[in-house]
Write a protein that binds this DNA or RNA. Structure first.
Lengths: 181, 181
DNA sequence: CGAGGATGGAACACTAGTGTTCCGTATCGG
DNA sequence: CCGATACGGAACACTAGTGTTCCATCCTCG
């Protein structure tokens, strides 16, 4: 999963040796590349669903719920590169298995209702934001000399700020306050 | 650039026809794939530098400057996928041509000094954040039925919130306030 | 110990992409 | 109008990755 997430076009031989099995064995379980990718997509979907389950999206205010979800999702590590990278793009039927998508959209709408999420941000955008920031944090932790712990702290901090509705009496030096449309 | 940004492993034949030239002609200007990628990287670097130049990073407070930069960078369109995707990862010497990197780091440090950027966010993280959000906005505008204008509005809104230091007297329901470390 | 299953190395044919050469054609300037 | 230049199609050899088959080895359980 790690290798495929990072380099979706990695040759099967590399994947096999990364998994510490022979290419033949890999082929025995997944006859062709497509079935391997299917299996991995499925596994990713399961893990993501489980993570969201653990996060308890319906508890507390919506923004807190999303931050909890982010913690859980960040812990999935390599899975992040998978959902973000081209593997997902090539699977139109996916787009996060629908139910994940639905769950996230629902939280965001709740956030709009309970005023914990900036209403200027559409549910789908929040979702894009979530995945992209998690992915960024993951690669940040990998590339830069930084612990996953620090990366998590910063992504949570940033995400919280991004989602939070603008405080009415905060230093309104324009720029953001007047979001067109 | 568009095609290479989206699918870094696209065959040269596709690239050629996407550029509406014959594969032979493509080969005449760029003898092998590597030289093509080099040229495109260079072009991307130039455009990004120009965009940052236009943004006037040294004017106004640092956060505003970064938001201006985001507008300019977002207008680069396909270039975003390039810097974000694996093309950059495979070019260690790049990492945004150094001077772009340096300029951005400098703005963030200024933002820490003038208290317009949350000091909990390291310069490198802000940079990751910037690119990933711009990339997310670009694909959002492409995939979802949304105008680039709307996407831009949302990314600016989110980025502003993410960078802005937490207002000391804002509804501090924890979560973000106490950023560990 | 011995049979059965899992493993993985070796070799194979096959395909897609690459880089190259050659040559006919179109286009532009004098 | 003609020559120079750019274009691009066709064909080629070459490589890397794929999917398959075959077989030797190892491990485990009875």
């Amino acid at each position: 999963m790690q290798l495929l997430g990072r380099r979706p076009d990695a040759p099967l031989s590399e994947i096999a040796s990364a998994a510490e099995v022979g290419r033949t064995t890999l082929h025995r379980y997944y006859p062709d590349r497509a079935s391997l990718v299917d299996a991995i997509s499925g596994e990713a979907a399961v893990r993501i669903s489980a993570a969201l389950q653990r996060a308890g999206l319906t508890e507390g205010d919506a923004r807190e719920a999303l931050l909890r979800a982010s913690r859980e999702l960040f812990d999935l590590g390599p899975v992040l590169s998978l959902v973000f990278g081209p593997l997902l793009s090539d699977r139109p039927e996916w787009r996060d298995t629908g139910d994940v998508e639905a769950a996230l959209v629902e939280v965001v709408q709740r956030g709009h209702a309970d005023d914990s999420i900036n209403p200027a941000l559409t549910p789908l955008w929040v979702q894009s934001l979530l995945w992209s920031m998690l992915y960024a944090a993951d690669s940040y932790a990998r590339d830069v000399a930084a612990s996953r712990h620090q990366a998590l702290a910063m992504v949570l901090c940033s995400l919280d700020g991004a989602l939070r509705p603008p405080t009415r009496l905060s230093s309104s030096n324009g720029t953001n306050a007047k979001v067109q449309q």
